[in-house]
Amino acid sequence: MLKINKVHHIAIIGSDYARSKHFYTEILGLRIIREVYRQARQSYKLDLAIDDNYVIELFSFPNPPPRPSRPESCGLRHLAFEVADVEAAKAAIEAKGVEVEPIRIDEFTGRKFTFFADPDDLPIEFYEA
């Protein structure tokens, strides 16, 4: 029987590596584990963590195709980060110039959540624990 332990990482391709790196490290505060430039692929690979948990691989590639639509395109719908206080998390990134949707309540759990977008319009969610 297959036993999956946990999500190991999420891979994201950014259209502008410097802008995406700034967003995920300076705006969201993810910690850099390692950064590698792969000459043969003309690509950066940036490994990011929350606390001690390796969670995101941020890639750059020359001329990646755009995401077809948001958020109901086929494929990854959004990336959700758990936070202790949605209002505080929303205020913190709004103070850094990120536009955030109004806070909503999950009809099934009663928990607060909100959405915003990364530099490539990837939908990101803050979900209150």
Rank of each mutant, 00 (worst) to 15 (best):
L58T: 00
I13H: 02
D120S: 08
P66H: 05
Q39T: 12
N5P: 00
H78W: 11
H78C: 11
D51G: 13
A80Y: 05
S43C: 07
S15F: 00
V100Q: 11
F23P: 00
A40E: 15
D106I: 09
L48C: 04
N63F: 07
A40Q: 13
R34D: 10
A18G: 05
K45D: 08
P62H: 08
K3M: 13
Y44H: 15
Y17P: 00
H8A: 15
I93Y: 07
E107K: 15
P119F: 05
E72D: 14
Y44P: 05
Q42W: 07
R31V: 14
Y44D: 10
I105N: 09
S15C: 04
G14W: 00
P68F: 03
S69F: 08
F116W: 06
R70Y: 14
K96N: 13
F59T: 04
K90V: 15
F23C: 02
K45Q: 14
G14E: 03
Y17M: 02
N5C: 14
P68R: 11
Y37A: 05
A91W: 02
I33Y: 08
L58Y: 01
H9S: 10
P64K: 08
E82P: 01
H9E: 05
E125I: 03
E26T: 12
E72I: 10
A129H: 03
A117L: 10
R31Q: 15
D120L: 06
I103E: 03
F113P: 01
E87V: 14
V83P: 01
A92G: 06
C74S: 09
A95P: 09
Y127D: 02
R104K: 15
D16P: 05
F113M: 12
I56E: 00
I4F: 11
R77Y: 15
A92C: 03
E107G: 12
I124H: 04
P62F: 12
E107F: 05
F81A: 09
G110F: 09
T114P: 04
A80P: 06
S20P: 03
G110W: 05
A129V: 14
V36C: 07
H22A: 12
D85Q: 06
I13D: 01
A91S: 13
R70V: 15
D106G: 13
A49T: 09
I103S: 11
K45T: 14
V86Q: 03
E125C: 12
Q42D: 14
C74Q: 11
H9K: 09
G97Q: 10
E128F: 03
E87Y: 03
A89Q: 02
K21Q: 15
A11K: 07
A18H: 04
E87P: 08
G75C: 06
S73W: 13
A84V: 12
P65Y: 04
R111I: 01
Q39Y: 07
K45P: 01
S73E: 14
S15P: 01
F113Q: 03
M1Y: 05
A117C: 06
N53H: 11
V83L: 07
R67C: 09
A89G: 06
K3I: 05
K3A: 07
R41Q: 15
L46C: 10
S73V: 04
R19V: 13
L30R: 00
I4S: 01
L76H: 02
R104H: 10
Y127R: 04
I10R: 00
I103K: 06
G97T: 08
L76K: 02
D106A: 13
F115T: 02
G110T: 11
I33M: 10
I93F: 08
E72Y: 12
G29S: 07
F59Q: 04
A40I: 05
K3Q: 13
L28C: 07
G29M: 12
